[in-house]
Design a protein around this nucleic acid. Structure first.
Length: 275
DNA sequence: GCCCAGGTATAAA
DNA sequence: TTTATACATGGG
């Protein structure tokens, strides 16, 4: 994707291939909040220990005060600016024409390349929970155990959380998930679960390893792989997916989508949620 | 008050 | 292997 550095920051010419609201509100992330006082569509969030405001101005997306260095080192990968999602959408529909309605139900979504530990931890918190409350718990996790960063706090490392007990997490009001968070932090911190290796290991091996964590099932594993490791080939084999495929799409085999099964799943999720 | 949320562990059939 | 239930909490 073309970008240029201006006095405003880094500017991306995107047309309709990057919709901030669809990207940030689709349930893939919990650390971006809309700037309600802004006259244009604008969000502020923190990733990789950097705070960023990003907003739309016509056909341009502006990363406020973002240097070339920060864009190249952080946000280029995070926003996956070199992937052409319109091409992927076309390929999904070619492979599975019955998914056209799902693909067209939402546009401009980009799959963020979040940090693996943050994604794992966030989706452990997400289980049997709603998005506003998930965001609240994640926010309190950062305020209590993260480092000051811009006007907020960074996401605490697995090493930091691994030294705590479920009682220490009481201020989060995460309920039964507190012990899951600790178990995940300990396994990641001591290497029993190696997130770094999951960027290119066989997807089934990754899923298995993640599911050794208490509180991590097929769904949390899939979300971790898709959103935290940017494994676009990840797809869930859980109850929700089976249900969506059997009722709405009548037996469609999503695994035939191969390397784009994960993205297809995102469209299916959005479509079935809004039926 | 009541229902339920991007699920999973656990027990029981 | 499949199915039922509890789980902590609080948003709507």
């Amino acid at each position: 994707m073309e970008y240029r550095i201006t006095e405003r920051g880094t500017e991306l010419t995107v047309g309709n291939c990057f919709d901030l609201r669809n990207t940030f509100e689709c349930g893939q992330c919990f650390r971006w909040n809309e700037d309600t006082d802004s006259p244009v569509c604008s969000y502020t969030g923190i990733a990789k220990n950097k705070q960023l405001r990003i907003y739309r101005d016509g056909g341009v997306i502006v990363l406020e005060d973002c240097s070339r260095e920060d864009f190249e080192n952080i946000w280029k990968d995070y926003f996956d600016t070199d992937t052409v999602y319109d091409d992927i959408r076309k390929e999904i529909v070619e492979l599975c024409p019955s998914l056209e309605c799902a693909v067209q139900s939402i546009d401009g979504i980009r799959i963020l390349a979040q940090e693996p530990w943050e994604a794992l931890c966030s989706f452990i918190i997400s289980q049997n929970n709603n998005i506003p409350r998930i965001k609240g718990i994640v926010s309190r996790l950062c305020e209590n155990f993260g480092e000051p960063c811009g006007s907020g706090y960074s996401f605490p490392s697995a090493e930091t959380i691994s030294k705590l007990t479920p009682d220490d997490l009481a201020p989060l009001r995460a309920g039964f998930r507190a012990r899951y968070i600790i178990d995940a932090a300990q396994k990641v911190a001591d290497g029993r679960v190696s997130l770094e290796k999951m960027y290119d290991a066989p997807i089934e091996d990754c899923r298995k390893e993640l599911m050794t964590i208490t509180g991590v099932g097929a769904k949390v594993a899939e979300c971790t792989l898709l959103y935290g490791l940017h494994r676009l080939d990840a797809f869930p084999v859980d109850v929700w997916m089976k249900k969506a495929l059997s009722t709405t799409f009548n037996g469609l085999d999503i695994s035939s989508l191969g390397r784009y099964a994960g993205i297809a799943q995102q469209y299916i999720f959005h479509y079935t949620r809004n039926l």
